[in-house]
C-alpha cells in the first residue's frame, strides 16, 4: 500500500491524531469534532485514482468495496471485500486510509 505524500506546510494526518479514531468508529457519518473533520477532509478529499467507494450489490443489504481509477478509460475496480453494514464499510476504509497516511495499522 503506497504511503501518501502530503505537501510540505500542509496538514498531515499522523499518529498524533489517534485521538479521533474512537470518535470515528462510534459515529462515522454525522456531527464530528473539528479534529476528526480535518482528518476526514484529507481522507475523503483524495484524488479519484485508487479512491475507495462502495458498489451496491443488493440495495440496502450488501455492498462491495471498489476503487475508482481517475481514468475514464478504466472503470471502477471491484475488490474482494463485501459488507452488510455501511458502518463496517466506513470503518474498514478508515483503517485503510489511516494506514496510507500514517503507516500505522489500526485494529
Amino acid at each position: 500500500m503506497p504511503q501518501i505524500q502530503e505537501l510540505e506546510g500542509r496538514f498531515k494526518v499522523t499518529e498524533a491524531d489517534r485521538r479521533v479514531v474512537a470518535e470515528f468508529k462510534k459515529n462515522p457519518v454525522g456531527h464530528h469534532t473539528p479534529e476528526l473533520q480535518q482528518v476526514l477532509n484529507r481522507f475523503r478529499g483524495a484524488p479519484m485514482a485508487d479512491k475507495y467507494c462502495l458498489i451496491i450489490e443488493t440495495p440496502f443489504k450488501k455492498w462491495r468495496l471498489g476503487q475508482t481509477t481517475g481514468d475514464r478509460a478504466q472503470p471502477v475496480k471491484p475488490l474482494d471485500k463485501t459488507f452488510t453494514s455501511l458502518e463496517d464499510a466506513e470503518w474498514h476504509v478508515f483503517k485503510l486510509r489511516w494506514k496510507m497516511h500514517t503507516g500505522e495499522t489500526l485494529k
Binding site: 462515522p28 457519518v29 454525522g30 476526514l40 477532509n41 475523503r44 478529499g45 483524495a46 484524488p47 479519484m48 479512491k51 475507495y52 467507494c53 462502495l54 458498489i55 451496491i56 440495495p59 455492498w63 471498489g66 475508482t68 475514464r72 472503470p75 471502477v76 455501511l86 464499510a89 466506513e90 476504509v93
Partner: peptide
C-alpha cells in the same frame, strides 16, 4: 460525479455508493 469528481465524498461526508446505473455509465461513456 461519484466516479469522476474528487469532491464527491467531501460533499457527502461518507463513502460514495455506486448503483448498477453508475457502474454502467462508468463503462459506457
Amino acid at each position: 460525479m461519484a466516479t469522476d469528481a474528487p469532491l464527491a465524498q467531501l460533499l457527502t461526508g461518507k463513502l460514495s455508493l455506486l448503483s448498477a446505473q453508475n457502474m454502467y455509465l462508468d463503462q459506457h461513456r
